[in-house]
Design a protein around this nucleic acid. Sequence first.
DNA 1: GCCCAGGTGGGTA
DNA 2: TACCCACATGGG
Length: 230
Amino acid sequence: MSTIRRAYRLLHDAYGPQEWWPAATRAGVADAWEIAVGAVLVQHTSWKNVVRAITNLESSGAMSVEAIDAIEPESLAQIIRSAGPPTVKAKRLKAFARFLVESYGGSMDALLDGVVDRKVALERRAQLLGVHGVGPETADAILLYAGGAPLFVVDAYKRRVMRRHGWGDSEANYDDVAKFWRKRLPSDVETYAEMHALLIKVGIEHCHASRPKCEGCPLQPLLPKSGPLN
DNA sequence: GCCCAGGTGGGTA
DNA sequence: TACCCACATGGG
C-alpha cells in the first residue's frame, strides 16, 4: 500500500470519520449556501470564529443569498466581525452573492448542477476563480463539499505535512500539489472529502510550528527515520 | 505581549 | 513571474 494510503488509514483509525462539512449553527447538515459562506469566512481564520459569524448572520436574518446581496457592506462587516478581517470578508461575501444571483439566479443548486462530473467541475471552478475573494482553495472546498465534485482541496496544513515527511514537492503550485494527492488516493469523492478534513485535524492538533517534533502525531510511523524534516 | 489561523488580492520590481 | 504585505479578531 502506498504511503499516502497508509496515512489515510492511520488518520482515519486515530480520528474516525470527520463527516464534513460541519454545520455551523444547526444540528443537521450544512446546506450548500452555508458551505459557501463558511468557505469564504474561514480563509486564514479558525473555524470557531466562523461559527460565531454565521450564528450572527442567522440571528440578524442576513444569512440568505438575497439578504447578503442587499445588505450594506458596513452592516455586513459588523455582523461577521468575529471571523477575521470584516471589511475584506464582507466585500467577498457580497461578491459571491452577486455572482450567484447574476449567473445562477441565486441558486446554489444551479451552480452545482453536474459538478460530480470532473469536466463540469473544472468549468465551474474556472468561473468561481473569477469571483472576487474566491481562490483555488475556496473554490475547491465549495465544489467538493457542497457539490460532490471530484476535486482535492490544498491548504497550508497539507503542505506542512508533506514538508515534514518529505512527500513530493510541498512548495509546488496549487494544482500540482492537488495532483500529488489525487494520484495517490482512491479516486472517490468521499475519500477526498475525508482526507482533507483529517489532514486539517492533524494539522491543528499536531502539525504546526509549536510541535516541531511531531509528538503524539498519528502519522509518526510514516516519518523518515531521521525524524521530521525542516 | 506575541504569534498564528482551513487565503486572497493588490502593489512593486 | 516572483515576492511582500494588508486584512483584523480571537485563542494559545
